[in-house]
Design a protein around this nucleic acid. Sequence first.
DNA 1: AGCACGCCGACT
DNA 2: GTCGGCGTGCTC
Length: 764
Amino acid sequence: MSHVEKAISATAVVGAELGSARLSVRFGKNARVSSEDGQGGGGAEGAPPEQLALIRESVRKAEVPRAKPRTWRGAALAKELPVARVLVDKGVLHLDRYFDYAVPEELDADAQPGVRVRVRFGAGRHRVRDGRREGGGLIDGFLVERLAESDYSGPLAALAQVVSPERVLSEELLGLARAVADRYAGSLADVLQLAVPPRSARAEQRPSPEPLPPPSAPEAGSWARYEQGAAFVAALASGGAPRAVWNALPGPEWSDELARAVAATLASGRGALVVLPDGRAVARVDAALTALLGEGRHAVLTADAGPEKRYREWLAVRRGAVRAVVGTRAAMFAPVQDLGLVAIWDDGDDSHSELHAPQPHAREVLLLRAAQDKCAFLLGSWSCTVEAAQLVESGWARPVVAGREQVRAAAPLVRTVGDGDLARDEAARAARLPTLAWQAVREGLRHGPVLVQVPRRGYVPRMACANCRAPARCRHCAGPLEGQEPGAALRCGWCGRDEAAWHCPECGGFRLRAQVVGARRTAEELGRAFPAVPVRTSGREHVLDTVPGTPALVVSTPGAEPVAEGGYAAALLLDGWAMLGRPDLRAGEDALRRWIAAAALVRPQGVGGAKGAGGTVVVVAEPTLRPVQALVRWDPVGHAVRELAERAELGFPPVSRMAAVSGSAEAVAEFLRTAELPREAELLGPVPVADTAVGRPRRVGAPPAGEHWERMLVRVPPGSGAALAAALKTAQAARMARGSGSGSGGGGAGDAVVRVRIDPPDIG
DNA sequence: AGCACGCCGACT
DNA sequence: GTCGGCGTGCTC
């Protein structure tokens, strides 16, 4: 034994007897020196520390059946509740459980449930040196619970550090994170990474503002336009927990209405949370809340604030200094105290889907929150998703809708131009634009700005009936049929079966067409057709927030439409085929949602007395199609209800639940062989997953460049979703055994990487 | 996933 | 004897 070791060993023994005064020595440099010092230990004088430890262990074991922390050989540990249950911050599923650590006395005060800690966590058997266990590196974690005893039979390592005494992880947030992890077959650590922002010491240092007393309850305002609107707000104000799916009338009032729902909840003494799809929507509700309640009552949580500011706002919420939150999807986990209302606006917008594992959707997270906290729930949209319709159909939520006369008063006039009109219309051929559309634009420009909605680039062409445009679907599982190139064999995008003899079940047609649209060029030509009028564009590159109420052509891609002062005089929706042609279950719903989002910015048809002053919308799409009819009638709820009925009939989500499993063919097959799926589970596939193109950034869920992946879909009936997620999670955790790399050929022994995605969005 | 332990074969 | 191949299993 070296001098250094002797010294340290002695210090440790003394420290153990004297208590905490010496503990810090062990965390110092000296301890590290000893650990690097070869195979020390077996000295002559006295028993080495680890033997002492073992002796005491065995003595205690005889006395107490359950383990107490022993690592420190009885050294100074917290006197009360000396065991800390820790969630180790690693997203891997087989570490998705708690680990117990001993709490040193000096960390006792700070080591409270909810704090961030650092612990030694490593592999293999640990060296026991100097009475202290080593191995593994320091990793972050959350202290979840303090206990008197551990149910772990081995010796416990000690907490290395309490990162800060701030108790960031409340019991409610932990419960929510666990529910989300279970729902999405993900790990708790992954969800917590989404739920708790990274620490900023400076933000923690700063005191949060003093909380304000509850405001008085607001007037119902424009909620009075809805049949159940005023009652809903009143229920919030009186401390109730109503659950509503709110089909908002077109126009700009929605943000004020959301603000009033928040204010009513605050008035009841509870907190409120609103999740919005993008920064522009957040800014509107932020402004509405400020107008209604003044500054200081709500926090804004968005991704584009810097990390320090973000954490500061988050802390103000966590500390209860601020009771209301508006933000984008990351705010869905905001730790609002005494939560009274969760609200989401426009749940059909795909930015509500989290990009990071396990990719939870804000609507689903808020549903879990509403159930867990027994609070009010409000899902609002100009449009209506099938999920929203299902909440009403199942009786879980009540509809908040306006009567037909209110809808007529608020909505623009909608007219359609179909393929037939296009073909017949000579002027249209020349201008690539139907007369009706041309007239609507010209007339609109006399009264104000005109919105032209054009498709985004990059949609996937899909096969449809050349005659009636109905999407071509597989006769076995009703998945979308895809043709590699025109004339080539058709194959189902879900189950991979070839379809040799397709015919259209709608009209009996047997010819197919791939859908292609040249609307962008049409819009450009439209601009040229009105040379005296300014043309502004809004799209992914530059998104305009607002445009003045003066005549102009405003060309925009879906989702980027600026709000026009006083509303648009007219809108031209040119992306009909592109939207309806997407190989997606949601194609119809999505098209309708985007049309409605644009049309809701147009003046009501009845505005003003003057002829032509009312707003007009022209949609270039076949008028017999269901989403087009729903737009004309302004009936997104009816559309969603019908879609829902159809999905139930065909076994589509959200009536059934689906999971996608992708990876190499062998990995996927092996995974599904070992997974103990629910009896009712139905396997569809496999189908190839699109390879990552060379030079292209790898998309989420796409295979690494050069690898060929396959995807299987697992479908379960209603009620089996939780069982499916649990089975997939278990199988994923057990997936340590590597793929059968036994000797076949060269390298690349299949590392059995498999991706599991609950509610895959691109189902076809 | 890391990463240490350990059980065998070749080497100073 | 001892170094080091990678196969196996654990992480409080």
